[in-house]
């Protein structure tokens, strides 16, 4: 039972990290129709910049803020320079964002070096405590709490504010939003920056969680986030969250109980969803092709 608990906590923590990345990916795709292949690069930049700021300042909160900020700044630059010129052209968007992914990865190597980077949780989040027989690792609980908080805030933003109303309307019909007198480009920009900031935040939180990482971490988590958006569909933030947690938990359990399947579990999840419900497990089929 205690083993099951620690696997669950592990899976939830991983799931929420993926959620931070996948939330932006699905928001941006849902609203703008842009599948951002550079998103993992932004995630990796969040990790490197955040952990660097954390090490330099000795303050974890500053590191977290810097990670998210790095994501937001990158998002702003990318939207303005790369996404706007190719708006509406899917092929070019995919090709451009992929190029950005390469450049972001190489820039990390140029600025921070290609060697593995280490990161430790701050003292107040280090170590563990026990509840009954279950060993609770503090930093994992922290990641879960932070992820849940972001999910709650994001849900409020999307469903309880006028801005969220604009986003939901834009997902369904961009042109009509313009007709009603709103500049959809501003909504796009804000969502892109928000999604990138979340990716940056995910990156910096991931650092102490895995302990050691390399620039390849961006691609690694991006693939997980892709699996999540395929499973969760691209319409609802709750669908994305559910899919992210499903992927996190499945990975945790399978890695322990059926180790040979570890590499295949995400693929199996994705293939079964694609074969059975191409619109995503939690997605709504909008009947378009």
């Amino acid at each position: 039972m205690d083993l099951w608990w620690s696997l669950t906590i592990n899976g939830l923590a991983t799931g929420f990290l993926i959620f931070l990345l996948a939330a932006g990916l699905s928001l941006i795709f849902g609203l703008m129709g842009v599948l951002n292949f550079a998103h993992g690069g932004v995630f990796a930049w969040g990790a490197y910049a955040g952990i660097w700021a954390y090490a330099a300042s000795g303050n974890f909160a500053i590191g977290v803020a810097c990670g998210a900020l790095a994501g937001a700044v990158l998002g702003f630059i990318l939207e303005k320079t790369m996404i706007t010129p190719v708006y509406g052209n899917h092929l070019q968007q995919i090709l451009i964002t992929l190029g950005v992914m390469i450049v972001l990865g190489e820039l990390i190597k140029t600025v921070f070096g290609a060697n593995p980077q280490g990161a430790q949780p701050p003292r107040w989040l280090a170590g563990s405590f026990t509840v009954g027989d279950v060993v609770m690792i503090k930093y994992r609980l922290f990641v879960i709490a932070a992820g849940a908080l972001v999910l709650a805030l994001l849900y409020m933003l999307i469903h309880r504010t006028k801005f969220g109303l604009l986003v939901r309307a834009g997902v369904a019909n961009r042109e009509m939003v313009e007709i009603l007198g709103y500049d959809i480009r501003n909504v796009f920009l804000f969502v892109f920056v928000l999604g990138s900031a979340l990716a940056g935040l995910g990156g910096v939180l991931m650092g102490p969680y895995v302990g050691v990482f390399t620039p390849a971490i961006g691609m690694e988590y991006q693939l997980l986030a892709f699996v999540v958006v395929v499973i969760g569909g691209m319409e609802s933030i709750l669908g994305t969250a559910a899919a992210a947690l499903l992927v996190g938990l499945a990975n945790a359990y399978v890695a322990y109980y059926v180790p040979p399947l570890t590499a295949a579990v995400n693929m199996l999840l994705m293939i079964s969803v694609l074969a059975l419900r191409p619109e995503g497990l939690f997605g709504v089929n909008r009947g378009e092709n």
């Binding site: 092929l91 892709f226 699996v227 590499a263």
Partner: peptide, 15 residues
């Protein structure tokens, strides 16, 4: 759709 195909093939090759 093109997005999904790109994503899916990337995942398959990585796997």
């Amino acid at each position: 759709k093109s997005h999904f195909f790109a994503m899916f093939t990337l995942a398959i090759a990585e796997l």
